[in-house]
């Protein structure tokens, strides 16, 4: 980007102050969202989310593994993110590593829960195959294809949709009691796949502070003017599942609480429309 001139910056800030952003939206409106599920057939679950110019894909792959020591009753979940150079030339080679890590960490904070396995987006105990020995491990991979701001929120929606789309094959254990010894027979029949309970999976809403006002779903241009932002992960019960503050400017605690409550309000609205969209996408998929 060339960088905005002083006049353009003032125009953006003033517009936001008057609840009229560059594309005509109000401060708390999301751009038009489109969700497609099952876009990567070889993965256990996948989804593609388009938020105007931002385009991301999330995929879930399930593999058999062992539970971590200290939590024998829980399966494992890993999240990683990659920004493709197609989104911006800066992501060529190793250029995207910092951004990849930052996004992955924010998602992990929102979805993975604590070290004991409690509080994760999905109930990790449902992933156990043999208690203490064998469990399912979910590898969640996010790929950013195109970016026009608000990548984190788009990724969180994609992860939620991909988890809803995920089918875990039925496992039959034959002989042996551990991962190395036992033989596993995995069912190939999609009808026998079990689905994850995604009722608790949150959606992230990033609230950015521009001047004295907060906006939701910033475009790339607006993001260049943001002094600080708070990303709030909210689930359908209105509980906050994760919180990340980004940006260098400091925030007064009362303003912070204000932004969090805006995030919760918008989050609840968004999550219900996202869940409707995901259900519609799944129905379209089944009809095909």
């Amino acid at each position: 980007m060339v960088g905005l001139s002083a006049a353009e910056r003032v125009y953006i800030e003033d517009g936001i102050a008057q609840d009229l952003r560059l594309d005509g939206r109000g401060r708390q409106h999301f751009r038009s969202l489109s969700i497609q599920t099952g876009v990567i057939p070889q993965a256990n679950g996948s989804a593609r989310v388009r938020l105007a110019g931002t385009d991301v894909i999330a995929s879930v792959k399930a593999e058999l593994g062992s539970p971590q020591p200290g939590r024998p009753g829980c399966g494992n979940m890993f999240i990683s993110v990659e920004c493709s150079p197609t989104a911006a030339p800066e992501f060529e080679g190793k250029g995207g590593e910092d951004t990849n890590l930052e996004l992955a960490k924010a998602l992990q904070r929102n979805f993975l829960g604590g070290a004991s396995g409690a509080g994760a987006a999905i109930d990790l105990t449902t992933l156990i195959v043999i208690e203490g020995k064998v469990c399912w491990e979910l590898y969640i991979d996010g790929l950013v294809l195109s970016s026009d701001g608000n990548i984190l929120d788009a990724l969180s929606i994609a992860v939620k949709a991909a988890l809803s789309n995920t089918g875990i094959p039925k496992v039959q254990v034959m002989g042996g009691l551990s991962l190395e010894e036992a033989d596993f027979e995995l069912s190939d029949n999609p009808e026998e796949f079990s689905h994850l309970d995604t009722a608790q999976v949150p959606v992230t809403v990033t609230i950015s502070k521009v001047g004295r006002y907060h906006i939701v779903d910033a475009t790339a241009e607006e993001e260049s003017q943001v002094s600080s932002a708070v990303s709030v992960a909210v689930n359908s019960k209105g509980l906050i599942c994760g919180l990340t503050k980004s940006g260098t400017a400091g925030l007064d605690p009362s303003i912070l609480m204000d932004m969090i409550s805006v995030g919760k309000r918008v989050g609840l609205k968004t999550i219900s429309s996202v869940e409707t969209d995901i259900a519609a996408a799944e129905r379209t998929l089944e009809a095909e």
Binding site: Q42, A43, S46, S59, S84, E92, D141, L143
Partner: peptide, 19 residues
């Protein structure tokens, strides 16, 4: 030119997509 493969692009999950 840079060519990269997504981790989910192949049947087996790839750890490293470029380089």
């Amino acid at each position: 030119c840079e060519y990269s493969m997504a981790t989910f692009s192949t049947g087996e999950r790839r750890k490293r997509g470029k380089g």
